[in-house]
Simulated scan of single mutants.
Amino acid sequence: MLVLTIDQRHSRSSPDLVGELIDWIDGACEALRPFERTAGDEVQGVLPTAESAVQLALDIVKSGEWSVGIGVGAVEEPLPAQTRAGRGEAFERARDAVERAKTSSGRVAVTGPPLETERLEAELQMIAAVNLRRTKTSEEAGQMIRSGMTQQEVAVKLGISQQAVSSRLSSGLWYETQRLTESAIRALEELDGTPGGRQRQPAGRREANQ
């Protein structure tokens, strides 16, 4: 099972953003159990797939406002209707992971079976660190590619040349981080015991020959 625990950074000196985050998550993905405030500025939810867990974690830490922990492991079943009532390894590990995420450069961490998450965590932290350093123009172009647009379509949308779009994607290491994200998803599927169980459309892969 995959549990995400999310903690707001600098919450003592910043407005409470938990309500906004929960509303955004509700519109961004389907959770196995909904994200809820568990304590103070902490949010927790249960996700159905490795892909949703990885993508959601990376999208959340990109704002710089949150630390995210991913917990992998068994849970007591059946799952209760409310996430905050959940019990088991995955919940405990998610809380451990978010504490470690607070002091990592990418603000994301993974806790799972011993000795099996170190590389996955390093991959996610590398991706998150690159995402945080990406310029707004590079991020804008990349998100359009992620939605399924071609470089030519992005160029028309932004009113710039395809060469300029390619330059923005290159400077932001867009394709490199997307391939690394796909690798992280596969690794998390294996940790969760569901390898190859999802069909994904690799973001931006249709651009490879352009």
Rank of each mutant, 00 (worst) to 15 (best):
Q8E: 02
H10G: 11
S13A: 08
D16W: 01
L17M: 12
L21C: 01
D23Q: 11
R33F: 00
P34I: 00
E36T: 02
R37L: 02
G40P: 01
G45P: 03
L47H: 05
P48N: 02
A50T: 05
A57R: 04
L58W: 10
D59F: 05
S67A: 15
S67V: 14
I70M: 11
G71E: 11
V75H: 14
L79H: 06
P80F: 07
T83Y: 04
R84C: 11
R87W: 02
A90W: 09
R95K: 09
R95F: 04
R95H: 13
S105W: 09
V108Y: 03
V110F: 01
G112V: 00
E116G: 01
L120E: 00
E121K: 00
L124F: 10
A128M: 12
V130Q: 10
R133A: 13
R133Y: 03
R133S: 12
T135N: 12
K136P: 10
A141N: 12
Q143G: 08
M144W: 09
S147M: 09
Q152A: 15
L158A: 11
L169W: 08
S170A: 14
L173A: 14
L173Y: 04
L173I: 03
L173R: 06
W174K: 07
Q178F: 08
Q178W: 05
E182Y: 09
L188H: 02
E189N: 09
E190F: 04
D192A: 15
G196S: 10
G197I: 06
G197N: 13
Q201Y: 11
Q201M: 12
R205E: 13
Q210V: 14
